[in-house]
Design a binder for these strands. Sequence first.
RNA 1: GCACCCGUAGCUCAGCUGGAUAGAGCGGCAGCCUCCGAAGCUGUAGGUCAGAAGUUCGAAUCUUCUCGGGUGCACCA
Length: 658
Amino acid sequence: MYRKIQLDLLRQIAAVVEKKYGIELPQVAVEQPPKLEFGEYALPVALQLAKRVKKAPRAVAEELRPELESIDGVASVEIAGPGYLNIKLDRGVVADRIATGEHADVGGPGFRLVEHTSINPNKAAHIGHLRNAILGDTFQRLLRKDEYKSGYDVGVQNYIDNTGVQVADVVVGLVALEGRTLAGVKSLLEELAARNERVDFYMWDLYARVSQWYTADEAEKEARKKLRLDTLHAIEHGGNETAEVADLIATAVLRRHLETMERLGIEYDFLPRESEILHLKFWEAARALMIEKGVLYQETEGKNKGCWVMRRAGSEFPTEGPDGDAKVIVRSNGTVTYVGKDIAYHLWKFGLLGKDFGYKPFHQYPNHMCWISTEDGEEPHPYFGRADAIYNVIDSRQNDPQSNVIQALRGMGYEDAADRYTHLNYEMVALTPRCAIELGYTVSEEDQQRAYIEVSGRKGFGVKADDLLDKLIAAAKVEVDARHPELDEADRFETARKIAVGALRYFMLKYSRNTVIAFDFRDALSFEGETGPYVQYAIVRAANIFRKAGVEEQDAVTDLAAGDLLEGENGASIWEVWLTASKLTMVIEQAIQNAEPAILAKYVFQLAQQFNNFYHKHHILTETDEAKKKLLLATAAVAKREMVRALSLLGIEAPEVM
RNA sequence: GCACCCGUAGCUCAGCUGGAUAGAGCGGCAGCCUCCGAAGCUGUAGGUCAGAAGUUCGAAUCUUCUCGGGUGCACCA
């Protein structure tokens, strides 16, 4: 609702400025005054205009003022300070419109493809992967159509590098270190399943062991390096026993990743795999296209002689001689680099490759199917590679490779695709030295002096996603058990699970994307202060009011007689809640615009804070003034409604009790 | 060496396209459960927004430089 009136204001001001001064303002700023008593909106537009129309700012403001007073919901317009136009709303009228749920819509045409998670299927997911998946899933929720907004058509992809060097490493571990054959690997998987052990945890340790093993023996170093490469090539090629072992492991680990993410409410629509990109010859199609468009050419001299290269993003193309800065796409031995395959994959995403995956069902979620790529697919199947805009949730260390892909699209003349390609980058999750020591890792003197230490799957150094979640659930369960002995075990566990997920998701979302999270159990396990459970608790309190009052929330919202109770100093602490509650759509727009879910996380915390403040100031159930009681109930109902909506966009459920 | 990110209160972080007296949480100190749940609330102390120069009516925010921290820069995958 806040945004709706704001849009009215902007439209009006633009029209008036154009009519009066003949000036077209591309961007008109709207702010909120520092204090509520100054009004709900502040327009510094007179300050911007003053110079151009050669008048004093306050005089300009005076001329604009009457034009704004006619807008629906506006009570008065005042001129303040150097020339601000401060706009006050008719609180009673606007509250009615907020109560009915009136709000600006979010959404538009076009299919948007969000890719996130993309964990190598060779080991357990860790906290760094959690940040990725939670960011991506939350962003997807912001875009998607739901009961609140018309949204966009969205597809969620999780890219699976099932033929990469990391999978090869655990295959080497199984075959060379543990001496297993294909049959031996099958029986290992059966044994693990029988013992109810997690295969991804097993691989976590094995992967760390293999990484050590490669360089442990100086005399064997070269032979082991060759074994690694041979294994990789066998997997890439396919159709042999090594590739079968790799597929077995990658698929088993992938299924575990999906389980882990499902615990957090994270689901996918499609799992494109590297193996299909190879076998369906995506690169060959891309190569032909790139040559045709003139971005790929063979170098005839210099250090890259014999390679097929692409001009690197942002570098100057030399007028003569070889481009030393060029990016090698095809090596002199004829094999393609990672960037080359990635370009092919992204041409597919935008429907520019002229090829498609085969599709088959892989995992059934309660409300939809998750498909996986295959060589010979089933019909009918959904389509994913025809996106109008894409969002790749990939950490900031991939900034350069990602910009290479964008640069390639641009070079091929697909400017529009390049513009609609968003690398949704974020900084890593690292461990504080204290946390690393707590976990029993040996930390060097030098590392102890640092603010944080990077996690490393290769070293087996990190916190596993499932372990953290288990720990959070246990901590929440202790609290729930103590507070609600009357509930049965299943209910208490379910409540603890919701609280744990709320704490974890909020923790990963409250930091803006380019902040390194220095992970510490003390902060992550907290349920107080700026946390998910704080907001959940505010919702539980609001729900209790209605339970005890015997009033339906719906009725409280429709049965509203604010009168002038919201006006002035006395009404401010109540109106403040309404005003914040009315900003949800505006915040969603901002979060999408900046691809920054943290904006929404910060917002819902602020709303919960204001609600808690209101809760202490006004005792609803004992209120004797009937009109005021109705207003207080409506306030609680609206605050609760918007908190629940905002949390659900963050992927956090509100428990009944906690 | 080059590119990108970061530097705001004791600690961890917000601060949207420049705007009114720089904000939260945690931690510290002092309080609040006979009253809708204390996973809560109130009060209080704490800041030369790394430093310098510039642009502007106005800079934590934009530009340049300096200092400090991080990440990435292979015909590896």
